[in-house]
Amino acid sequence: MKGGHDLGGKQGLGPISPEPESEEPVFHAEWERRVFAMTLATGMLGQWNIDESRFARESQHPVDYLKNSYYENWLAGIQNLLVSKGLVSEEELAAACGAQKAAAQLIIPNAQEALRIIGTGGPTRMPSDTVPTFNIGDTVRAKKMHTKGHSRLPAYAQGSIGIIEENYGCHVYPDKNSLGEHVGEYLYRVRFSSSSLWGSSGENAYENEVLIDLWQPYLENFE
C-alpha cells in the first residue's frame, strides 16, 4: 500500500537536521528502550513475521504515521499486532490490566534465549527450482501496483524503467509473507537513472543512480 511510510521522493518535509554523531545516544528516552525491547521480544513469540510487523506500522493513517516519532510508530505496531493476533484484548490494552488468556502454549524467551535468537537472525534466502525470468543487463519496468496489502515496491519507482544489475536469488516475498504465506520469489537489484525516476529536473545535471531491490512479480519486460 502507498501509505504514509512510502516516502521516497516526497517533498516539503524540510531539512534533515542530524544530531552530531558523537553526541547521539542509541535511545533518547527510557520509553524508547522499552518499546524497542518489547517489539523484539514479542516478535520472538513467533506469532507474526517481519512483513506483518511492518504492515502493522504502515497501515496506520498517514497523518498519524508522519506525526508520530519513530518509536511511537513501533508502539502502534505492536499494539495492533497484539490485539489482531489475540494475545491481548482491546479492553486489556485500554485498561492495561492483566486478565486470563495467558501464553500457556507460547515459548517465552528468557534473556539467554533472546540473545541467541538475535545472534542467529532469520535469513530470508530460499531455495528455488524455477528459472529466473530476468537476466543481468535486461531492461525492465517496475509495474504499477496499487495493492491494498503490504508491498516493498516503492511508489516512486512504479512505471520507471531500469536495468537488472544483480540477481540475489530467491527471497521470502513480502507481499505474501505479510499474509502468513512463506513463499520465495527472485529478488533483483535494479538500477534506475535519476532521470528515469525524477524527470529532467533537480539534480539531473549529475549522474545519480538509485538501486532498488525488487522481487520478480514487481517487474515486467521492457522492449
Binding site: F27, R34, F36, T42, V88, L93, A114
Partner: peptide
C-alpha cells in the same frame, strides 16, 4: 508504555530479563 509492559509481563508474554538483555 509502562502499562503495556506491565500487561505483557503480567500475562507472561515477555520475560523482563529478556527485555533488559535486548536493550
Amino acid at each position: 508504555v509502562k502499562a503495556l509492559e506491565s500487561l505483557l509481563v503480567e500475562k507472561g508474554l515477555v520475560n523482563p530479563e529478556a527485555l533488559n538483555a535486548i536493550i
